[in-house]
Amino acid sequence: MPTTQSPTAPEAVRRIACIGAGVIGGGWAAHFLARGYDVTAWDPAPDAEARLRRLVAAAWPALEQIGLAEGASRARLTVAPTLAEAVADADFVQESAPEKLELKRSLLAELAATVRPGVVIASSTSGYPMTDMQTEAAGSAAGAGRLVVGHPFNPPYLIPLVEVVGGERTDADAVAWAARFYDVAGKSVITMDRELPGFLANRLQEALWREALHMVANGEASVEDIDASITEGPGLRWAFMGPCLTFALAGGEGGMAHMLDHFGPSLKSPWTRLEAPELDRTLRDAMVDGCERTAGDRTYADLVAARDQGVIDVLRATGRLGDTQR
């Protein structure tokens, strides 16, 4: 497979083109500006520039609170009249057009044909695999080979996560370049080994959301109770310790192995409208091994202390700890 040779190292990127200036594209623009980049945006809507500048202005106080990079300024935002002018000098392109497959296909093909050779082009799609979006782009390193998914979470200027994955025609080095760039640009990066519709976090969110809809539709719970069940319960732990390690702690010092061996049969209980996977030895061992890698050198006591302190920190940060510590 040909190799995508970017003309600019991830650490040397200076100008970013944001194609699409809605909520996500505008959020990306605000993030990149706060990190000290020059940003050129383009959006075909007649009022796009005014909306974009309002969005960036609204985001700026929060960005100032968390800290701006040296040289960061809203004055470094330019809105170009055409797509070609927006990407002319770009070292990286972030596409954030509406979530319509045919639009994504044609726009990414146009970008691949217009952007300087080697410059990586990332899509903010929230669910489409890149394989499905790169079908109309030229089959070369300068075309489909440099198209990757860079999926953010709203608002992109505050939520750290970005999921990076290529398509069947994407060059591996384009994925590696994008992952490194996002890391340099201050994001928390997950580089996926394979495509999965919806990626990782959206699939997990969707499972929870779907079960919530079932509960409301069947009169089993109110919207208020569903939200409180997360914000006052597992959501406090998920802010700093994911569901796998959280469940591992439920197994006590025996960890994930004890939790699965003890509670595994309950996976067949009809608690949700989602079918449970078969808990065979391969899945069991993968969960145990993964939790052990995540825990690293931390003991069970270390993890419990980290979890407890994390819950306290989240409660304090959200104003729910009260005056008990005063």
Rank of each mutant, 00 (worst) to 15 (best):
R146I: 00
A185N: 01
G127Q: 07
D173F: 00
M130I: 15
A48Y: 08
A48E: 02
D261R: 13
A207C: 12
T78A: 13
G219Y: 04
T4M: 12
V314K: 02
G252F: 11
L274K: 12
V162C: 00
A301G: 12
P152N: 04
Q309L: 12
P44N: 03
D193I: 07
G242H: 03
T246V: 07
A97E: 10
P117K: 02
G166R: 00
G186Q: 01
L236H: 00
L267H: 10
G145H: 04
R210Q: 13
P160K: 01
M1I: 11
Y128N: 08
E85S: 10
K187D: 00
A45G: 09
G233K: 04
M241G: 04
G319C: 03
G20S: 06
T40G: 02
D132P: 07
L63K: 03
A59V: 03
H31E: 11
S140G: 15
Y182H: 00
G167N: 04
L200I: 13
D313F: 05
R298V: 10
V311M: 06
V311W: 02
T125Y: 10
R281S: 15
P160R: 03
A72L: 04
L103S: 06
R51H: 11
L249H: 08
G67M: 14
W60F: 04
D171W: 00
V304W: 14
V115E: 10
D38Y: 11
Q94R: 02
Q309P: 10
A17E: 02
C18Y: 02
F199Y: 14
R74F: 04
A228G: 10
A57W: 07
A137I: 01
E232F: 09
A257P: 11
Y37A: 01
V184A: 03
A174L: 06
A57C: 11
R203A: 07
Y182N: 00
S266A: 14
L283F: 08
V39P: 03
R14I: 05
R281P: 10
G20C: 04
E253W: 08
A138N: 11
M192I: 01
R307G: 04
F199Q: 05
E168D: 15
A50H: 04
R14S: 13
L245S: 07
Q5V: 15
I66Y: 14
L107C: 06
T318G: 12
R169N: 13
L245T: 10
P152M: 01
T125V: 06
R307W: 09
A58D: 14
A48W: 05
R293I: 11
V311H: 03
E168A: 15
L279P: 01
A250I: 06
D225A: 12
T272R: 07
L279C: 05
L260S: 09
A75P: 12
L208R: 07
T318P: 09
